[in-house]
Design a protein around this nucleic acid. Structure first.
Length: 493
RNA sequence: GGUUUCGUGGCCGAGUGGCUAGGCGGGGGUCUGCAAAACCCUUCACAGCGGUUCGAAUCCGCUCGAAACCUCCA
């Protein structure tokens, strides 16, 4: 199909590297998913869309991809909570719900939001709570290898011991000595041999709701073990790509490396890929900073920082217009700009089939296509690829206006270009679904209205024709008079 | 304090030794009954100071400023 010369930035080496899977044509991809204790915000959309793009592109260039993205429903400590109660448990008590009820609620809503963004669901979406046994097994093998110790029903990873044989900090560029000196004092710290050690298993306090039996008593798994255990289970001891947000680099991913190496002796991941943050007023949008805007709020415009609502496709396009390793700053202006740009792109796409074929034009669609592939092969450079699609927009518009001419094969190539890149790879789809039978009625109705208006215009009765246009405009239906007659579309705002 | 990044035009964002990024906005024009759309033209740039080089926004150094991580976070 195409040359598989995808280059991807590997955080481990801090370089762009040619992507070569361990077992072609199969590719194993693991991405850290959400902790389901609240609605997803714009920040959550970034890794979802970034790795959706990678998933789509890998498949497009011919790989068979198993994409695993976990749901974290256990194990994250609340920072203001002294008894080691995890986030899910805390929320559950506040709302007097079963923890699993909270998990189910927010998982469903997460799925709805991701579906709206046209994020393809992963091949496997394992829950941490469903893999307690696997996590316990992994902890046992780390204990067996002598890289962990048990204290009081909790098990900690012995970073110092591990660092004697391996290199703790290789991913994030940290040195163990600095870590030991610089770590803050936290609850339960006194149980650890060293500050830098981290929990593999935590003993549950009496009021802790989420608890499981283990060889060390009742408790719950540590902060990082789920990803190691589940990636091993579904992708093997060694797999190709592990993704996630940059904020997970340390300690989460660093600990994952240590756990896998300690348990199996193998470096599990070949390529570490990290997306950057979305910022708001120059600061990371995040749960703890309380400066986040949920996806639902974007979709319906219900947030004081939003001037209007923004469609899922606008958000998707907004995210794709920046390179995934750059920070992306949110603002209404930027989103409106993205919305308009996307509209231009979509309108051009819809015009392709209406172009009348003529003489072969002096443009190379193939060249644009190759440039798009080059851009994506260069560490998924979507902004560049999109800029080439805008070049194609100019070609389309000018042919549609009969200022230039394209032959049948060029028109087909354009259609193909947009189908491949805009739809298949970028996952941008028309937000106007024409799938219900009601829409046919609307279609017929609009034909009648436009016919009336056309007659009025021919009689130069512009009062009537403008009245129709203005009234429809009030209903968010926009009329455009082109040389081929009037067309209508529903405005998104 | 340590680790890792970044600082591009009115806004968002690519690029990274010499060749137009792109989008949005602003200005002018063509088209149109008027609009809208489209098309054409146009404006505004690489934080500062040194250095390397025939040539730097791009490499190096310093200064200033910002962010992420070091604690749950996408």
């Amino acid at each position: 199909m195409t040359e598989k010369n995808l280059n991807i930035y590997n955080t481990l080496t801090r370089k762009k590297e040619l992507f070569e899977p361990l077992h072609p044509p199969y590719v194993g991809l693991y991405v850290c998913g959400p902790t389901v204790y609240g609605d997803a915000h714009l920040g959550h959309a970034r890794p979802a869309i970034t790795f959706d793009l990678l998933f789509r592109y890998l498949k497009h260039i011919g790989y068979k991809v198993r994409y695993v993205r976990n749901i974290t429903d256990v194990g994250h400590l609340e920072n203001d909570c002294d008894d080691g109660e995890d986030k899910i448990a805390k929320k559950a008590r506040l709302e007097k719900l079963e923890p699993m009820e909270v998990v189910q609620h927010y998982t469903t809503r997460y799925h709805q939001d991701m579906d709206a963004l046209k994020v393809i669901r992963p091949s496997i979406e394992p829950h941490a709570s469903g893999h307690i046994i696997e996590q316990i097994e992994m902890i046992e093998s780390i204990l067996d290898k002598g890289f962990a110790y048990e204290v009081n029903g909790s098990v900690y990873f012995d970073v110092v011991e591990y660092n004697k044989k391996y290199n703790y900090g290789k991913l994030s560029g940290r040195k163990l000595d600095d870590l030991i000196c610089n770590t803050r004092d936290l609850e339960g710290q006194d149980e650890k041999k060293n500050n830098a050690d981290f929990a593999l298993w935590k003993k549950a306090s009496p009021n802790h709701i989420m608890r499981w039996k283990s060889p060390w008593g009742e408790g719950f798994p540590g902060w990082h073990i789920e990803c190691s255990a589940m990636s091993k289970k579904y992708l093997g001891e060694k797999f190709d790509i592990h993704g996630g947000g940059m904020d997970l680099l340390f300690p989460h991913h660093e600990c994952e490396i240590a756990q896998s190496v300690a348990a199996t002796g193998n470096e599990a991941v070949n390529y570490w890929v990290h997306n950057n943050m979305i910022t708001i007023n120059g600061q990371k949008m995040g749960k703890s900073l309380d400066n986040f805007i949920t996806l639902r709020e974007f979709f319906n415009g219900n947030h004081k920082a939003l001037k209007k609502e923004y469609s899922p496709m606008t958000l998707r396009f907004f995210i794709l217009q920046a390179h995934y390793r750059s920070t992306l700053d949110f603002s209404n202006e930027a989103l409106i700009a993205a919305e308009k740009g996307l509209e231009r792109l979509m309108e051009a796409k819809n015009k392709i089939e209406k172009i009348e074929p003529g003489k072969k034009g002096n443009v190379s669609i193939d060249q644009i296509k190759n440039k798009c592939y080059d851009a994506l092969n260069d560490d998924l450079n979507t902004p560049i690829a999109i800029s080439h699609l805008f070049d194609a927009v100019k070609i389309i518009n000018s042919a549609f206006d009969k200022k230039t001419s394209l032959d049948k094969s060029q028109i087909d190539e354009l259609s193909n270009l947009f189908n491949i890149f805009l739809n298949d790879i970028f996952g941008i789809e028309s937000s106007q679904q024409a799938d219900s039978s009601d829409d046919n009625k609307v279609e017929e109705l609009m034909d009648v209205i436009l016919e009336v208006r056309k007659n009025a215009r021919e009689k130069k009765d512009f009062q009537i024709s403008d009245y129709i246009r203005d009234k429809l405009n009030e209903l968010n239906i926009e009329i455009k008079d082109t040389k081929e007659g009037a067309s209508w579309s529903i405005k998104k705002s």
